[in-house]
Design a protein around this nucleic acid. Structure first.
Lengths: 153, 153
DNA sequence: TGGAGTTGATGACGTACGAAAATCTCGACG
DNA sequence: CGTCGAGATTTTCGTACGTCATCAACTCCA
């Protein structure tokens, strides 16, 4: 076990409430506030916890369309393409992958017109050999972070 | 009008630091603590901010393999399939989509063996007509939450 | 009139610091 | 060869202090 049990419990507790106070965490895990503070700093320094964010509901802000875009790219142009995708504000995830396509990206848009425009400008790149866009009809689960396993003794 | 964009600014500030104190937010946005508190409560009640989470680096915890799984599903079995995917702890995102496939899911696994096992058990379902798995070679961007636009006058 | 700010009171919060407890290290001894 | 224990190291804890969140009552002003 690379990481102590307390650390896993701490991460799980924070996954439940990312703004929980050190005191409430300490009570929940039955250790002192100082211990929570120390372990939390360690987790942050080690990079296990890379920061904290609110979970924003983009739907309620008018970003009604989510799309999964798959691209076949000219081999040596891959870094350029992924970089350019990364620059696009509305790209949630950009993956280089094995399989039929080389890149899979997930983006959010205000409407299908906005989506089409963005995608069209993207596809002007001559290094993109083929593309395939799937529009999300229903996001059953999105960006879910799962809890860590605790092995009790 | 002066505070038209306060909510957007507040969300953006929290996207920068999800554990920022009301006081630091108030100073950053040049409004009173009370105002920040009120607007934040409103955003939470409206569901724009649905909660707060740490950003966990699953790579550093040994979840080295991310995969994008695409499925063609027997029409009326779609809810069953998405539900079952949702139950899988390690599924980050599960989308019902238009296009060649009916479902696109993203999952994280400790290794390729673990991934293969999980996927194999998944595919025993007779309602899954076809599947296609892409292994992520490089996560350029993952679960990024973009900042909201501020329209200045 | 309603959104924003101010003030003040109260209890909760984060962090620094030193003490206490637990754990590890490693040579000496039976 | 096994184990014992003093000293070193790490981990945990309690306390104290300055800051913070929250609430209520009241003011300001467009």
């Amino acid at each position: 076990m690379t990481y102590e049990n307390l650390d896993a419990k701490l991460v799980n507790a924070l996954l439940g409430d990312g703004r929980a106070s050190l005191r409430s965490l300490a009570e929940e895990l039955d250790v002192s506030v100082t211990t929570v503070s120390n372990h939390l700093s360690d987790l942050e320094e080690e990079g296990v916890i890379q920061g904290y964010t609110p979970r924003v509901d983009y739907d309620s802000l008018g970003y009604d369309v989510t799309a999964v875009i798959q691209l076949k790219v000219e081999g040596n142009a891959l870094p350029d393409i992924t970089d350019s995708l990364k620059e696009h504000r509305q790209m949630i995830s950009v993956y280089e992958v094995t399989g039929d396509y080389d890149v899979i990206a997930v983006g959010k848009f205000k409407d299908t017109d906005g989506m089409n425009n963005q995608i069209k400008t993207l596809l002007t790149d001559p290094d993109i050999k083929e593309s395939n866009t799937s529009v999300v009809l229903n996001a059953v689960t999105e960006n879910e972070q799962f809890e860590l396993l605790i092995d009790d003794d």
